[in-house]
């Protein structure tokens, strides 16, 4: 049921990888097309406008069924994420109803605050399950919890190209992957045929239609664009510190390379005494004499 997660287990010291065990009889779903993402590569950054559009799609479409439990409204003001102003984030928060209790212990609903987390659409898992027969997964870590099998030799290439976007690629492909079932495919009642979903029988009906969400920045209001924007938003939701990580990573790598260079020459200098040809017969005897 869980999307076919792929494997990233790798045998580093050799050059071997691992792949997911796909049930024998089940043919492998097609590889999701590889999209270009602003956040890929060593200098990747989130595209604020895209995340804001993606958030709009989440809010108007996905949030009907999918929770986003791990995110708080304050996260929307993350300057490296969607980059809403604090006032905007506060405004968005106040438009949500948060369950609380008042001074007398009575349950109330109050407007959300920045510190509040996104309220779930269902009061509990059983209620969520009742909707489609399976509980719609929480979306907080979804972009890191989905992927597809890279296979040999790509899993080795990925180490060097830093390809880490299987999750958003899969999500974007999945959202556009609804098709008529091919002849001979037995689609169980309540199921929907999706080209990219492992086993092809997914519980979620096609969630997006062209023109469904209004964009005010002139971006095309198509399923294709919606799918890409929500996938980018979910990547940020799953990995909010990606920008800081890559920025610090570059600094750390430069530093380590400089230090390694200095240490290499220091090492050469220290070993000069025992490695220089004219002294090569000395070893510890020579260094002791000098000490």
């Amino acid at each position: 049921m869980k999307a076919k997660s792929t494997i990233r287990a790798v045998f580093v010291f050799g050059a071997l990888a691992a792949g997911t065990a796909v049930a024998a009889a089940q043919e492998e779903p097609p590889t999701p097309p590889r999209l270009s993402w602003s956040f890929s590569g060593p200098f990747g950054k989130y595209d604020q406008a895209q995340l804001q559009r993606g958030f709009k799609v989440y809010r108007e479409v996905c949030s009907t069924c999918h929770s986003l439990n791990l995110l708080a409204f304050r996260d929307l003001a993350d300057p490296y994420g969607p980059g809403f102003s604090e006032a905007q984030a506060q405004q968005i928060a106040s438009e949500y109803k948060i369950k609380d209790i008042d001074d007398k212990g009575q349950p109330i609903e109050r407007p959300g605050r920045l510190a509040d987390h996104f309220p779930p659409p269902f009061p509990n898992e059983a209620a969520a399950k009742a909707t489609y027969g399976v509980a719609p997964p929480d979306m907080s870590t979804l972009a890191k919890a989905r992927g597809y099998r890279r296979g040999f030799p790509w899993f080795i290439v990925d180490i060097f190209t830093q390809y880490q976007e299987e999750g958003p690629d899969y999500i974007a492909a999945y959202l556009q992957g609804y098709r008529e079932p091919p002849k001979g495919f037995e689609l169980p009642a309540g199921g929907h045929y999706n080209e990219y979903f492992p086993g092809h029988n997914t519980a979620m009906p096609p969630p997006l239609q062209d023109g469904q969400v209004a964009y005010d920045d002139g971006s095309p209001q198509t399923v294709q664009q919606y799918a890409k924007d929500i996938a980018a938003f979910l990547m940020w939701a799953a990995e909010p510190h990606l920008v800081a990580r890559k920025r610090i990573g570059f600094q750390v790598l430069i530093y380590l390379i400089v230090l390694a260079g200095l240490l290499y020459f220091t090492k050469k200098r220290v070993w000069h005494a025992v490695e220089a040809p004219h002294e090569s017969a000395s070893g510890q005897a020579a260094t002791k004499a000098g000490a």
Partner: peptide, 20 residues
Amino acid sequence: MTTVSSAEPTRRDFLYIATG
């Protein structure tokens, strides 16, 4: 540690200090 005489002690010292 070792006091191996060197023709360019300053360069060697600089390297050690920079690395440290």
